[in-house]
Design a protein around this nucleic acid. Structure first.
Lengths: 129, 129
DNA sequence: CCAACCTTGACACTAACGTGGTAAGGTTCG
DNA sequence: CGAACCTTACCACGTTAGTGTCAAGGTTGG
């Protein structure tokens, strides 16, 4: 059968075996198990792992973000509660969305640059420069 | 008019003024501004701040989770990409969802307990005990 | 005009996420 | 049966999120 062990899966997907266990713990990709407990990654899991990596990369998301999205996706009270909160009118046209949101999202990059660049530790955030 | 300043808003909503600025930076609640730049929290913002606090409390969410949900809610490529990834069949019936997910979500609590409890620093996670 | 606000910027610290190791002990297979 | 895997558990560490606080300077109102 074509089910790979964790290290083989790691090699073909780019994730480390450590991370494959972490991803499993996060509930995003759960491989089958052999009778003795070995993780068995089939074509479906491998594909899922590769696309997951692409998703994170493409939108600069955190594993926890996707895990949260999955939680939302499953419906339930949470989904409704969040949907309701977001449905509130609030923001006006030409809102913050495109503007402030960008700044917020870029904080991490700025911080990285600040830390790696200038002097030493400059982890800060918020507001327009 | 009934628009509160940041400290007044802080008092009536339970958030600290520091956090109100942080919440704004996250793009979740954006108050209007006075001609001179002072933040003005109206009834809508106050309500939004209170319900946001309840939402986080009720489901033990992080501000970043809701911020991400808002990002998803706005549609766009991200929304579709995430939706597509989540739509993959993968998990079988009686899946991990209810089981492993709980463990993952509780890791933070376990860590807190571990750190505060036993010896000294025990921040760890993952797998069934 | 001055006390009491507000603004942004920056420093600091804790908690949580992401990730790599290592240790102790099973499983596989040539 | 031993090398080379696997498992869970735990430690360590860098990064990010969350939060307080302080400094320098503008605004407000009696």
């Amino acid at each position: 059968m074509q089910a790979l062990t964790i290290h083989e899966a790691a090699e073909t997907t780019g994730w480390s075996s450590r991370m494959l266990r972490y991803v499993e713990a996060s509930g995003l990709v759960t491989p089958a198990r052999s009778p003795s407990g070995y993780r068995l990654y089939g074509p479906a899991e491998l594909q899922r792992l590769r696309t997951l990596a692409e998703l994170l990369e493409a939108f600069d998301l955190a594993l926890s973000d996707v895990a949260f999205a999955a939680r939302l996706d499953k419906g339930g009270e949470l989904r409704e509660a969040v949907r309701e909160w977001l449905s509130a009118p609030a923001r006006k046209p030409a809102d913050v969305s495109a503007d402030d949101w960008l700044e917020f999202e870029q904080e991490k990059h700025e911080r990285l640059l600040a830390t790696a660049g200038r002097r030493s530790n400059e982890l800060e955030l918020m507001e327009r420069s």
